[in-house]
């Protein structure tokens, strides 16, 4: 039956109101999980705070496993949902740049927006930076277009690329994520003994 909007159960005008509520839940969870602090986010890369890994991977595995069950019970037609298209060269480059930007800036777009709401000026500056960065990209697009659109694989999933079914991939990711939770918990304990100025 789902996605409800695409199959005519809900009109597309309601869709926008629903978008606000979904965004609210998203923003609430980001803020209340502690993503509004850049030190919490950056902490994952120095081993003193793994909250990012925990929230992120838990969300991914819950969504992955949940999606497959929803498809199985016939609640969602999996062929109708949006799958991010794959353009390997530009996406890898973009991800490398984003990683560096995350370490320097301490936020990612979503977390910076929630941090603005609780009054962080650094988050506001980061968001202005985002705006400028995208503006640079738009202006430089004629030079980047070829690279941007190269090696278009289309809307492919892991199963399309590897031939291993999505169920196995969900299991692999779940095992990987659960293992990382247990390992990071012990790393955190050791590292936190060494750092004194940061309150946990």
């Amino acid at each position: 039956m789902g996605p409800l909007v695409l199959n005519g159960f809900i009109s597309s005008n309601w869709n926008l109101l629903i978008a606000v509520f979904i965004g609210m839940a998203f923003g609430f969870l980001l803020e209340s999980s502690g993503f509004s602090s850049s030190r919490n986010i950056a902490g994952v890369f120095y081993g003193y705070n793994f909250v990012v890994i925990r929230v992120f991977f838990t969300a991914v595995i819950v969504a992955m496993v949940g999606l497959l069950y929803m498809g199985y019970f016939g609640w969602v037609n999996l062929s109708q949902i949006f799958i991010l298209p794959t353009f390997l060269p530009s996406m890898i480059t973009g991800a490398v740049i984003m990683g560096v930007g995350m370490i320097i800036g301490g936020f990612c777009p979503g977390t910076s927006f929630t941090a603005i709401t609780i009054g962080k000026i650094d988050a506001l500056v980061f968001a202005i930076g985002l705006y400028i960065g995208i503006f640079f990209f738009a202006e430089g697009y004629p030079f980047l277009e070829k690279f941007y659109l190269s090696a278009n694989l289309g809307h492919v999933t892991l199963a399309d690329v590897t031939g291993i079914s999505l169920g196995w991939w969900a299991l692999i990711f779940t095992v990987f994520a659960l293992a990382s939770f247990w390992i990071t918990a012990s790393i955190e304990k050791k590292v936190r003994k060494r750092i004194k100025d940061y309150k946990f």
């Binding site: 998203f26 850049s38 992120f56 991010l84 298209p85 353009f87 530009s90 996406m91 480059t93 973009g94 991800a95 490398v96 740049i97 984003m98 560096v100 930007g101 995350m102 370490i103 320097i104 800036g105 301490g106 936020f107 990612c108 777009p109 979503g110 977390t111 910076s112 650094d122 988050a123 500056v125 980061f126 968001a127 202005i128 930076g129 985002l130 705006y131 400028i132 960065g133 995208i134 503006f135 640079f136 990209f137 738009a138 980047l144 941007y148």
Partner: peptide, 24 residues
């Protein structure tokens, strides 16, 4: 640093077709 990080991140999101939430 926040500004530089933001600019880099913003540029990267377009190449990567999304940010930490949208793409990753």
């Amino acid at each position: 640093y926040a500004l530089i990080g933001g600019i880099l991140f913003g540029f990267g999101t377009r190449l990567g077709r999304g940010c930490t939430s949208g793409a990753a």
